[in-house]
């Protein structure tokens, strides 16, 4: 059964209150973000249907949105997503090497997830960090000025955090 906790439902109410009366459809993107975080990092159809029911809109209105925006995952992803920017400014600052390095280190290609479900590697377009390239997004934060050593540290850190959370 897909259901937000009471505290998350309060958060949903607060989100809806940001918009004028009757315009709760505007809350769909923020509520999808919340749902993705709560229900395993991706949006399965029942999750989207649940969001639709919360906002009193039709499921198709939710699917339309979920399929348009690149931050919504429509397939399962690893516990940690490495979203490496590959656009021009990052490319001329060495993004290709970083993407190769991560791929080799984790044994996956862009778009793939490690077999233990820990890491997903994804290439993305400009994240607004061009001056701090090469860079990637990992969850809520950016990891900038990437070097192979820095990547090693980040991977180790993720593994440690995962081990201590289990």
């Amino acid at each position: 059964m897909i259901q937000f906790s009471d505290s998350k439902l309060k958060e949903v109410e607060k989100i809806i209150a940001r918009y004028p009366q009757g315009k709760q459809k505007s809350a769909v993107i923020p509520v999808l973000h919340l749902a993705q975080q709560e229900f395993g990092g991706w949006l399965d159809v029942p999750v989207m249907d649940y969001v639709a029911s919360l906002l009193s809109i039709t499921p198709i209105e939710v699917y339309e949105v979920a399929t348009f925006y690149s931050m919504f995952n429509l397939k399962p992803v690893g516990r940690y997503m490495f979203e490496v920017c590959q656009t021009g400014p990052c490319m001329i600052s060495g993004a290709d090497n970083i993407i190769d390095y991560i791929g080799k280190k984790l044994g996956i290609k862009p778009g793939e997830t490690t077999s233990d479900g820990m890491f997903t590697l994804k290439t993305v377009e400009c994240l607004g960090a061009c001056g701090y390239a090469p860079m990637m997004q990992m969850g809520k934060h950016y990891k900038e000025h990437l070097t192979p050593q820095r990547v090693d540290e980040i991977v180790d850190e993720c593994r440690r955090n995962a081990a201590s959370n289990n």
């Binding site: 459809k25 809350a27 993107i29 809109i57 209105e61 339309e64 919504f72």
Partner: peptide, 25 residues
């Protein structure tokens, strides 16, 4: 109020931004 998008350059175009703020593509 802060409204967070979800990854789409096109939403910087002002009418796309408005659509997105209304909860659409």
């Amino acid at each position: 109020f802060v409204h967070r998008g979800a990854g789409a350059y096109i939403c910087g175009e002002e009418t796309a931004l408005i659509e997105s703020l209304e909860g659409k593509r």
